[in-house]
Design a protein around this nucleic acid. Structure first.
Lengths: 203, 203
DNA sequence: TGACTTTATGAACACTGTTCACTAATCTTT
DNA sequence: AAAGATTAGTGAACAGTGTTCATAAAGTCA
């Protein structure tokens, strides 16, 4: 052994992710650079490459952490609900919590969906697992629908995500003021109503 | 006057947008650079600044063109429908056409939503007008709902957009194979069912 | 002390967006 | 035809980017 490490690799990793998180939160994805992350840690840029394959790798790990925080945020929202709250109420809570998280952590949340991995490469399992966990939360609240719950979960998840994207990137604001929570309510309530109606017709 | 222009400013603008479109379509937003656009036109990079304020400005104009192409694509889809097709059928056609366009022109379509304008700046009217035109198409098919048509239009538009985003960026694929058109069908049909049911209860 | 190992550096490379002094080609005027 | 005016377009420069890698510094062991 030689040159006692100031920080273990695990510490370096955590410091880099924390620095990157602060930068993205404050300046957006465009403000992120290896030199800026490194200098915030008190290291040279080259040091990052001892811990990450490249900047893409760092972003992927930051995104996994963001999804973990989102998951915790959703769990809290559910915990605040009365114990006897029904599925619809719980789904609405999840949907609104999702939108609030996206708004509060806009840049970090954007990075998750705007970071395209290089052609052909596949999402690392660490990230995929986090996505599954989130979707699982929605599926759990829809299990009473029986067959079709997984489809409904994906529709609602995507729908709420779409509302957040368009509302927060001003792509809807061009058409007048947007009340995103009202859109979320309408989506969840009408979709669930429709699902119930369709079910009655079939049976 | 001196040094007869090889191309008028309008021609330069069109050439630059065409070059940028090809680059983005082939390599994605990350592959776009002023030098690459210029060299494809047979000009130096500096020339672009005679026609565009900066690269952001070029991207904004490219995005306006992309939305124009999307609008034409939607118009075609409606035109292919039988003249007696009802609103639901027309809405489904619009939704599926939107998804297909996003899939076929993935990189160009992504650029529209992933290009955040600098903090505080507002979307140029040329783009805003195109967004309004697209949303107007959906609203037109929902006018039979009376009050709440504009809300429903935003919900459906956002929802279909969200499905396209998550399906095409593999953020849902992590949870197993995704049949995006089936998600679109479910969203539009159940939401309209639910809207009809809610309307009955109120009256 | 000398040999060995590992940590971290910082210079180098090829690239980026953007600016601007300048050239070369054309038009206008003499 | 010659001289002067005008401008389209250039290309070098600047500050920044991600990434690599020889090298220096600092520690351990014999």
């Amino acid at each position: 052994m030689a040159r006692k490490a100031q920080h273990s690799k695990e510490e370096l990793r955590a410091m880099a992710l924390a620095a990157a998180r602060e930068i993205v939160a404050a300046e957006g994805a465009a403000g992120l650079s290896t030199r800026k992350v490194a200098s915030r840690m008190g290291y040279a840029a080259g040091t990052l490459y001892l811990v990450f394959r490249n900047l893409d790798d760092l972003v992927l790990q930051l995104n996994a952490a963001t999804l973990e925080a989102l998951d915790a945020h959703l769990a809290e929202a559910l915990a605040r609900l009365p114990a006897d709250a029904g599925p619809r109420r719980r789904l609405l809570a999840l949907a609104h919590a999702y939108y609030l998280f996206a708004r509060e952590h806009f840049h970090l949340w954007s990075l998750v969906f705007e970071h395209h991995l290089p052609e052909g490469e596949t999402m690392p399992e660490s990230l995929a697992a986090r996505v599954r966990a989130l979707l699982g939360r929605v599926e759990a609240e829809l299990s009473h629908l029986g067959a079709g719950a997984d489809l409904a979960a994906r529709v609602l998840w995507s729908g709420v995500h779409g509302i957040a994207v368009l509302a927060l990137t001003d792509n809807l604001a061009a058409t007048g003021p947007v009340d995103a929570p009202a859109l979320v309510d309408s989506l969840v309530n009408r979709y669930l109503d429709g699902f119930a109606a369709a079910g009655r017709n079939q049976s």
